[in-house]
Amino acid sequence: MRFSAVFSALAVVATGVSATNLSADSTPSVLTLTASNYYGAPIPPWEVGHSPGWYYGNSALSGIISLADTIICELLELFPFCLQCPKPPQTPSPPEYTQTFSNLTCAIQDGSYQTYGLVDTVADCQTMCDTVAGCTFFNTYRDVNGKDGSTQLTCALFEKCLDASSADNCGGQTQPDGSIDSIIQSDGYCKGTPTA
């Protein structure tokens, strides 16, 4: 069983194709998930041409690496220099995050940017911050792009704690369908100790 998962994972690396749906267009290479490539999101979410580097949640999203997919997670374990799938804590830990702002209509824009992806919940973004080395702050928000919007939250990770004064990415970019994007429900959380 483990051999077949590893073989499938190696096939994904060799071809860039997802073992679950075999579409090269739907799953980018996991080898882009390195710190030097901002874990698959080298263009920050406030710049033109950005796209999320990963997804951590329960939905099936096309064209983005799912950090909840068993085969992808086994593959990433073979490459310790890549972003790893979050592992649930063995015992509940006390909350170590302090909320620095809530419900803004602008998101964080800062040079301590590490990566961004999509999540289903604020707790999922916290889990991602706990997974990425050096993460001290995360910003969740809904980036309303296009007429259909998105059910996922944007989860942006940073190396330093930030507050509302750094939230100056207020959307306003024209989308391919002619609509203008906007940012809603932007929340920021600062971690007491950076992720090791």
Rank of each mutant, 00 (worst) to 15 (best):
D110I: 01
V48K: 14
A41Y: 09
P45H: 15
Q84A: 06
I64L: 11
N103Q: 13
Q109H: 05
S8T: 05
D163N: 15
D143P: 05
F138D: 05
V144G: 00
T154F: 12
P28L: 02
I65E: 04
C135P: 08
P86D: 06
T151L: 12
E96G: 12
D110F: 08
L61S: 03
N169P: 05
K147M: 13
C125W: 14
I183G: 08
I180K: 11
E47D: 12
T15R: 05
G178N: 08
T15S: 14
N169C: 04
S165N: 13
W46K: 02
G192D: 11
L162W: 09
P176M: 07
T136P: 03
S62G: 07
I64P: 10
F138I: 07
T151V: 12
A107H: 07
T34C: 03
E96L: 05
C170A: 09
T151D: 15
T140W: 03
I65R: 08
P94L: 11
D25I: 04
T105K: 13
T15F: 02
G117F: 09
G49H: 06
S166Q: 15
M128P: 07
S150W: 15
L61M: 09
C106I: 04
N145P: 00
Y113R: 03
L33W: 14
G192M: 14
D143W: 14
A35Y: 13
V12F: 00
R142H: 15
S4H: 03
T127I: 04
D130W: 01
M128G: 03
S23L: 14
G53P: 09
P95K: 01
Q99C: 06
L118S: 04
C155T: 07
T27F: 14
P80L: 05
T136R: 15
A19I: 00
Q99Y: 00
G57M: 08
C82I: 00
T32H: 10
V132R: 09
D187Q: 03
T193M: 11
S166V: 02
D177E: 06
S18E: 09
A19H: 10
T193Q: 12
S150L: 10
Y141L: 04
C129Y: 11
E74D: 10
T174A: 13
L33A: 02
I43Y: 00
A14P: 00
L33V: 02
L22I: 06
T121Q: 12
G40L: 05
Q126M: 09
T151I: 13
G63Y: 13
S26W: 10
N145S: 13
A5G: 06
S93R: 07
G171T: 09
A196Q: 14
E77L: 00
